[in-house]
């Protein structure tokens, strides 16, 4: 059986099951009520994309810094990196958002909730990015550094021409995967009243009492972003799979 046919079959089977379940609950559909709010959905969807992309950029920078800390020979820097990564990865994003917004941002006088949202999301994602970058750099054999030194490259040149080009190929696929997580995790920004995709759906639901008509498009809207990204991650992995 060809792969695409197998995928189609599984999706069709799943759709049939879901349709059957919906048929049994006798749900009274009211699509027109929700359709009236389509612009709100679109705006929320675009906000989710913007917040996720912003967080991807900022968390990449944080991740690079943190991965450098993790590999540092100085105990204090290594401790900073390790505590950051373990603390963030070990606690729920929900708690981080609430403390970040109501306590820390308040204390330092940061009022723009969108800025706070991107920052907290970036700090959260940066901890995962740090491990992605650390793993990418660790995967480059030390013999490559040796060869770079042997031909007379400076440490900076060795990073720029030898280590990073190879490490980037290794970290791109997991970074695309991390963006998928970011997009879904950004739904929690709704708890600090950022009008992203999920909050839009919640609000429309509050106006129309049409729960499924709000949340089904919500799921579809996320899939529209995450499925192509997963495909991209797999493509990148194949593309850069050469072996020395």
């Amino acid at each position: 059986m060809p792969r695409w046919l197998a995928h189609l079959l599984v999706v069709a089977l799943l759709a049939a099951l879901v349709a059957l379940a919906f048929a049994r609950v006798n749900y009274a559909w009211n699509w027109p009520a929700v359709w009236a709010y389509r612009e709100k959905f679109l705006l929320g969807w675009l906000t989710t994309i913007a917040m996720s992309l912003a967080a991807l950029v900022v968390s990449s920078l944080i991740g690079i810094l943190a991965s450098l800390c993790l590999q540092s020979q100085r105990p204090l820097l290594e401790a900073v990196g390790r505590v950051y990564v373990e603390l963030i990865r070990g606690t729920p994003l929900l708690v981080q958002l609430l403390i970040g917004f109501y306590v820390i941002a308040n204390a330092v006088g940061l009022e723009n909730r969108y800025v706070v949202g991107v920052l907290v999301l970036s700090l959260f994602s940066g901890a995962y990015m740090a491990e992605i970058f650390r793993g990418g750099l660790a995967a480059i054999p030390t013999t490559q550094r040796d060869a770079a030194r042997a031909i007379g490259l400076t440490p900076w040149q060795s990073l720029r021409f030898v280590i990073l080009p190879q490490a980037i190929r290794l970290v791109l696929p997991p970074m695309a995967g991390q963006l998928v997580s970011l997009i879904k995790d950004s739904s929690l920004l709704s708890v600090i009243a950022i009008s992203e995709f999920t909050l839009s759906a919640q609000e429309v639901n509050a106006f129309t009492y049409s729960t499924l008509e709000c949340y089904l498009p919500l799921a579809a809207g996320y899939l529209l972003l995450t499925l192509p990204l997963s495909a991209l991650a797999r493509w990148l992995e194949r593309r850069f799979h050469y072996e020395s």
């Binding site: 013999t143 490559q144 040796d146 060869a147 770079a148 042997a150 031909i151 021409f161 030898v162 080009p165 190879q166 190929r169 050469y242 072996e243 020395s244």
Partner: peptide
């Protein structure tokens, strides 16, 4: 110039 047992060419 240095030549290594495992070549150590830059694979990229």
């Amino acid at each position: 110039g240095t030549v290594f047992q495992a070549y150590n060419l830059f694979p990229h």
